[in-house]
Protein backbone atom coordinates (compact mmCIF):
# COMPACT_ATOMS: atom_id res chain seq x y z
CA UNK A 1 0.00 0.00 0.00
CA UNK A 2 2.72 2.37 1.05
CA UNK A 3 4.72 1.66 -2.06
CA UNK A 4 1.75 2.31 -4.23
CA UNK A 5 1.04 5.56 -2.44
CA UNK A 6 4.53 6.69 -3.03
CA UNK A 7 4.22 5.70 -6.59
CA UNK A 8 1.30 7.95 -7.43
CA UNK A 9 1.66 10.64 -4.83
CA UNK A 10 3.88 12.95 -6.81
CA UNK A 11 1.63 12.47 -9.78
CA UNK A 12 -1.65 13.70 -8.32
CA UNK A 13 -1.56 16.63 -10.68
CA UNK A 14 -1.44 14.24 -13.60
CA UNK A 15 -4.53 12.52 -12.34
CA UNK A 16 -6.37 15.81 -12.00
CA UNK A 17 -5.45 16.81 -15.52
CA UNK A 18 -6.45 13.41 -16.90
CA UNK A 19 -9.78 13.51 -15.10
CA UNK A 20 -10.49 17.06 -16.28
CA UNK A 21 -9.82 16.00 -19.85
CA UNK A 22 -12.07 12.95 -19.53
CA UNK A 23 -14.80 15.05 -17.95
CA UNK A 24 -14.60 17.70 -20.63
CA UNK A 25 -14.77 15.03 -23.33
CA UNK A 26 -17.90 13.70 -21.59
CA UNK A 27 -19.49 17.14 -21.42
CA UNK A 28 -18.73 17.89 -25.02
CA UNK A 29 -20.06 14.50 -26.03
CA UNK A 30 -23.30 15.24 -24.25
CA UNK A 31 -23.56 18.64 -25.87
CA UNK A 32 -22.52 17.80 -29.37
CA UNK A 33 -23.60 14.26 -30.21
CA UNK A 34 -27.16 13.56 -31.30
CA UNK A 35 -27.19 9.82 -30.74
CA UNK A 36 -28.71 9.08 -27.40
CA UNK A 37 -26.52 6.02 -26.84
CA UNK A 38 -23.42 8.10 -27.36
CA UNK A 39 -24.80 10.69 -24.94
CA UNK A 40 -25.24 7.96 -22.38
CA UNK A 41 -21.71 6.82 -22.93
CA UNK A 42 -20.52 10.39 -22.47
CA UNK A 43 -22.39 10.63 -19.21
CA UNK A 44 -20.71 7.42 -18.06
CA UNK A 45 -17.41 8.89 -19.05
CA UNK A 46 -18.08 11.92 -16.84
CA UNK A 47 -19.09 9.72 -13.96
CA UNK A 48 -16.04 7.57 -14.24
CA UNK A 49 -13.69 10.49 -14.52
CA UNK A 50 -15.08 11.61 -11.19
CA UNK A 51 -14.61 8.10 -9.82
CA UNK A 52 -11.01 8.10 -10.86
CA UNK A 53 -10.48 11.48 -9.25
CA UNK A 54 -12.09 10.30 -6.05
CA UNK A 55 -9.83 7.28 -5.94
CA UNK A 56 -6.76 9.38 -6.58
CA UNK A 57 -7.60 11.78 -3.78
CA UNK A 58 -8.52 8.91 -1.48
CA UNK A 59 -5.09 7.38 -1.98
CA UNK A 60 -3.43 10.76 -1.70
CA UNK A 61 -5.00 11.42 1.68
CA UNK A 62 -4.67 7.84 2.87
CA UNK A 63 -8.35 7.81 3.55
CA UNK A 64 -10.43 4.87 2.34
CA UNK A 65 -13.88 6.47 2.45
CA UNK A 66 -13.34 8.03 -0.97
CA UNK A 67 -13.00 4.58 -2.50
CA UNK A 68 -16.11 3.42 -0.70
CA UNK A 69 -17.94 6.25 -2.39
CA UNK A 70 -16.70 5.10 -5.75
CA UNK A 71 -18.46 1.80 -5.22
CA UNK A 72 -21.62 3.58 -4.28
CA UNK A 73 -21.46 5.68 -7.41
CA UNK A 74 -20.84 2.66 -9.58
CA UNK A 75 -23.84 0.86 -8.11
CA UNK A 76 -26.08 3.88 -8.60
CA UNK A 77 -24.77 4.44 -12.11
CA UNK A 78 -25.54 0.81 -12.97
CA UNK A 79 -29.12 1.25 -11.75
CA UNK A 80 -29.46 4.55 -13.59
CA UNK A 81 -28.16 3.16 -16.86
CA UNK A 82 -30.63 0.28 -16.62
CA UNK A 83 -33.54 2.66 -16.39
CA UNK A 84 -32.04 4.94 -19.03
CA UNK A 85 -31.57 2.09 -21.49
CA UNK A 86 -35.10 0.87 -20.86
CA UNK A 87 -36.39 4.32 -21.73
CA UNK A 88 -34.15 4.33 -24.75
CA UNK A 89 -35.64 1.06 -25.97
CA UNK A 90 -39.12 2.55 -25.64
CA UNK A 91 -38.05 5.66 -27.52
CA UNK A 92 -36.68 3.52 -30.30
CA UNK A 93 -39.86 1.47 -30.50
CA UNK A 94 -42.00 4.58 -30.69
CA UNK A 95 -39.95 6.78 -33.00
CA UNK A 96 -37.83 4.31 -34.88
CA UNK A 97 -34.64 6.20 -34.15
CA UNK A 98 -32.19 6.92 -31.37
CA UNK A 99 -31.62 10.47 -32.47
CA UNK A 100 -32.21 13.05 -29.74
CA UNK A 101 -34.00 15.29 -32.24
CA UNK A 102 -36.75 12.69 -32.42
CA UNK A 103 -37.86 13.79 -28.94
CA UNK A 104 -38.83 17.26 -30.10
CA UNK A 105 -42.47 16.46 -29.48
CA UNK A 106 -41.87 16.40 -25.72
CA UNK A 107 -42.71 20.01 -25.18
CA UNK A 108 -45.58 22.02 -23.78
Amino acid sequence: MNNFTQLIAPNLNNYIILCSILFTIGVLGVLIRKNIIIIFMSIELMLNSINLLLTAFSVHHGESSGQVFVFFIMAVAAAEITVGLAILVMIYRNTGSVNIESLKNLKW
Binding site: V27, V30, L31, K34, I39, I100, E101, L103, K104, N105, L106, K107, W108
Partner: peptide, 17 residues
Protein backbone atom coordinates in the same frame (compact mmCIF):
# COMPACT_ATOMS: atom_id res chain seq x y z
CA UNK B 1 -41.32 32.13 -21.54
CA UNK B 2 -42.97 29.06 -22.96
CA UNK B 3 -41.19 29.49 -26.28
CA UNK B 4 -37.94 28.58 -24.53
CA UNK B 5 -39.25 25.07 -24.08
CA UNK B 6 -39.20 24.16 -27.74
CA UNK B 7 -38.58 20.49 -27.10
CA UNK B 8 -35.01 20.27 -28.43
CA UNK B 9 -33.16 18.26 -25.82
CA UNK B 10 -29.85 19.46 -27.10
CA UNK B 11 -30.70 22.96 -26.08
CA UNK B 12 -31.93 21.76 -22.69
CA UNK B 13 -28.67 19.99 -22.07
CA UNK B 14 -26.75 23.02 -23.21
CA UNK B 15 -28.75 25.21 -20.86
CA UNK B 16 -28.17 22.79 -18.04
CA UNK B 17 -24.43 22.64 -18.50
Amino acid sequence: LKSIQDGSLGFYLFAMV
